[in-house]
């Protein structure tokens, strides 16, 4: 029984602080090359191995990350 996760990032509200990057246990998130309307590079999920552990959402100071997970 493994957990499969997916994150949704409010790219407009993300301030590109990158605090979430080091806490992802499966390294599935990176800073995008693109920027939002305020000029911040926003975070995005780049690989599928997300396990929905919510680490990134916990440390995000602006609460822009929503985590979904399902048992597979």
């Amino acid at each position: 029984m493994a957990m499969k996760g997916k994150i949704v990032v409010d790219t407009e509200k993300c301030k590109g602080c990158e605090v979430c990057i080091p806490v992802c246990p499966t390294n599935v998130i990176e800073m995008s090359k693109l920027v939002n309307s305020k000029g911040y590079h926003f975070m995005e999920q780049v690989r599928e191995e997300c396990i929905g552990c919510t680490n990134c959402a916990l440390v995000c100071p602006d609460g822009v990350i929503t985590v979904y997970r399902v048992k597979v």
């Binding site: 509200k13 301030k15 590109g16 602080c17 990158e18 605090v19 911040y40 440390v59 995000c60 100071p61 602006d62 609460g63």
Partner: peptide, 20 residues
């Protein structure tokens, strides 16, 4: 929390402290 965008600098701990 309200839906207002936080005025804190990127990465500042205030936002997290507010939320928890």
């Amino acid at each position: 929390m309200t839906d207002k965008e936080l005025s804190y600098c990127p990465g500042c701990g205030h936002g997290t402290a507010h939320r928890i």
